[in-house]
């Protein structure tokens, strides 16, 4: 079942990669459109450093599991497909957890339960099953990278918004992730800022997430209108059909 897709992918690799990038970052963004992985997205995005830490960890796991799943896609029978994927994802997550413990211990303590919970992030199993198991290694790896980036970018945006409005700073505590060179990266945007706890607490995450989705929808609508204006006389058959959530 996968051979056709493989040959198709080989003939137009660049077009495929461009589509993957667009899907992951914008059109089918895991956080904004698919609304997957909301639990870590909302739970951890209280500051830029937390968001970046979990974003990178998640991206590495998606990439790793996508590559591994793509490599073994011809060897795995349908019956044991899902358990094998879950095993692969779990082992990558455990490895990432060990690595974070070894190199960014304080961040590991702050992120706490959310690191092992990467296993349950639907994006990862979703990509493994929907994409990596049907495509060759290069597109699968790139898809993992782009989906991971799409997730990480939204995490970062949320983290920046919440840190800015919640504490009036940006990039505080980056040394937890990047080591001593980042110790003085903190930008105090509003000096003497009174903490706005709502933004730091989970309910604020929901509200800001709602705003991000609304902004994306507004931009989408504007672009659609502009496209319509640009090609007003285009014949009906070739008009772009809006498809969401499909590869």
């Amino acid at each position: 079942m996968t051979n056709n897709t493989d040959t198709a992918a080989a003939t137009s690799t660049t077009a495929l990669l461009a589509k993957i990038a667009k899907d992951g970052l914008w059109k089918n963004n895991p956080a904004l459109v698919q609304l997957l992985g909301l639990c870590p997205l909302l739970g951890v995005s209280s500051s830029v450093v937390n968001a970046l830490g979990l974003g990178i960890a998640t991206m590495l796991v998606v990439m790793g599991s996508n590559i591994a799943v793509s490599l073994i896609r011809h060897q795995v029978t349908d019956a044991i497909r899902l358990p094998v994927f879950v095993m692969i994802i779990a082992s990558f997550t455990t490895c990432i957890e060990l690595l974070m413990q070894a190199y960014t211990y304080e961040l590991y303590r702050i992120l706490g339960i959310f690191i092992p919970l990467i296993v349950t992030n639907c994006i990862i199993l979703g990509r493994a099953d929907a994409f990596a198991s049907r495509n060759s290694v290069l597109p699968a790896a790139f898809d993992g990278f782009m989906m991971g980036s799409g997730f990480a970018v939204i995490l970062l945006l949320l983290g920046a918004m919440r840190e800015l409005i919640g504490q009036g700073t940006l990039f505080s505590g980056m040394d937890l992730l990047l080591g001593p060179i980042a110790a003085d990266w903190t930008i105090t945007v509003f000096p003497n800022y009174k903490q706005f706890l709502f933004a730091i607490l989970p309910p604020g995450a929901f509200v800001f997430m709602g705003f991000l989705i609304a902004i994306k929808n507004i931009i989408d609508r504007r672009m659609e209108e502009r496209n319509k204006q640009r090609q007003p006389t285009e014949p009906k058959e070739s008009r772009r059909v809006r498809v969401t959530g499909n590869i």
Binding site: Q195, L201, P203
Partner: peptide
């Protein structure tokens, strides 16, 4: 509730 949890 917003101000209660934000500015206890």
């Amino acid at each position: 509730v917003l101000v209660l949890i934000s500015f206890p």
